[in-house]
């Protein structure tokens, strides 16, 4: 479904990604972790072309992301993305947040978009809040709306960039529960997260990045059992202490 081949990216002389290679098969859940500044966000943003890259190739569902002839907007409309800071549109009601791209990008009718939005809002347990504005919801609720907004587009895969790291601890689980359910239903997912409980529960593979390199790309059991690199061992020891 997603194939990343020798991707490199630099800002001026600063190398952010170096020869990153990995694959995500249909229905797989991949967790990406690593220290701050290691390039996790950059890598995941390269997948839907939000960040350009200078070398290598990425294909999503057989479509090349780096090819200038690719209709990136169309590709992005099929790849869901969830951000650390939710990025709901604060000037629109929850209903409008859910329907705007369905109408303007997919060309669905207002009624169809609304109905779909309500269905997904119900799925993340927030149907009662349909007419509120994002500012009136808690962080956890906003992130669940953001997931519903992405799902409204019927994505072929989902990208998550630290979806719980801006949340108060008591709200993390309500978001993880939605993500676990999604994974169990067979959604293809690439998640940047340090929630190792989530990784243990649903991940097929764990990728560990450091300084722009993919240092480990292993099955969940191998990764948690005995990480190959010293850096990953230290990293795991540190975050599992918490």
């Amino acid at each position: 479904m997603i194939s990343i081949d020798n991707v490199s990216k630099h800002y001026g002389s600063f190398q952010v990604l170096t020869d990153c290679t990995t694959q995500v098969k249909k229905g797989e859940v991949i967790v990406v972790c690593g220290p701050s500044g290691s390039g996790k966000s950059t890598l995941i943003k390269c997948v839907n072309g939000l960040e350009p890259f200078q070398a290598g190739a990425i294909t999503v569902d057989g479509i090349s992301v780096g090819d200038p002839k690719t209709n990136l907007s169309k590709l992005r409309s099929r790849v869901g993305m969830v951000f650390q800071h939710f990025e709901l549109f604060p000037h629109m009601s929850i209903t409008d947040n859910l329907s705007i791209a369905q109408e303007k990008v997919l060309g669905r009718s207002k009624d169809e978009a609304r109905a779909k939005g309500l269905k997904l809002l119900e799925r993340v347990g927030l149907k009662a809040h349909a007419e509120k504005f994002p500012g009136q919801l808690s962080g956890g609720q906003q992130q669940r709306v953001a997931i519903a907004r992405a799902l409204c587009m019927d994505p072929i895969c989902m990208l998550f960039d630290e979806p719980t790291s801006a949340l108060d601890p008591e709200m993390i689980n309500e978001v993880l529960d939605v993500m676990v359910e999604l994974a169990q239903e067979g959604m293809t997912m690439m998640c940047v997260t340090h929630e190792m409980g989530f990784a243990r529960k649903v991940a097929n593979r764990v990728i560990f990045m450091d300084k722009g390199l993919i240092v480990e790309d292993d099955s969940k059991d191998a990764f948690f059992g005995a990480p190959r690199s010293e850096r990953a061992r230290q990293f795991l020891a540190k975050i599992l202490q918490h």
């Binding site: 839907n48 939000l50 907007s73 409309s77 790849v79 705007i100 303007k104 990008v105 992405a150």
Partner: peptide, 22 residues
């Protein structure tokens, strides 16, 4: 915030749609 344009683009909106609607 820049994230708003990123979110609009990630939903498949064109640059002018992101500007106009978001």
């Amino acid at each position: 915030p820049k994230g708003q344009v990123a979110a609009a683009s990630a939903l498949g909106m064109s640059y002018s749609q992101a500007m106009r609607l978001v």
